[in-house]
Amino acid sequence: MFDPPPEKLTPEIVFREYAPRIYNIARRMLGNDADAEDVTQDVLLQVVRKLDTFRGDSQIATWLHRVTVNAALAHRQKRANRQKHESAEADDDVLGSGGPVTPGKRWEVGPEESVLAAEQAAIIEKAIEQLPEPFRDVYVLADVEGLPNNEIGEMLGLSLAAVKSRLHRARLRMRDLLAPHFEGKVTS
């Protein structure tokens, strides 16, 4: 999640502290650098232009998430309109019903591991890119950003049940995508 804002926001602080956060969310949702750059630019301009409004406003973190998600969804819609073969519509059948699952082996990522090696992070980022968009959105906001499901539902216009269902299926898909990389060697 975005860190709590400093007491007084300046344009430089906004640029330094928030632009990378905006970019990272947009990059993960949209899956490519060019689109993430467009969204970051749009959102950053909005923030700078409304800076006076946010001085001392403890809700800026929530606002930034909302504006970034909205900008990313709008950008994706525009892209989909240009490229007819892509659809921004959520298809809840894309990842199936969530079962049955294939058996696997225990993973070698240690239970206490909180910092990922660059190679592991790259594998996970690549797997996120492979999630269908509606599931990727929920997964990024819930499991990467750590936002609560009800807040995600409000941002994406989904019921709580739909958020939980998509998140569950996204996690199962991520498990399948990551298993070849993490399965096997350690059985603890």
């Binding site: 956060r21 990922l116 499991d143 991520m174 498990r175």
Partner: peptide, 27 residues
């Protein structure tokens, strides 16, 4: 095994850096 792997998909996602620096040229 499923619960172990599922739990780790959550754990590794949460361990991803949230604030990777902007690409220099874009910055």
């Amino acid at each position: 095994t499923l619960v172990h792997a599922y739990t780790h998909t959550v754990r590794v996602a949460r361990a991803l850096p949230k604030c990777n620096p902007l690409p220099a040229a874009f910055e």
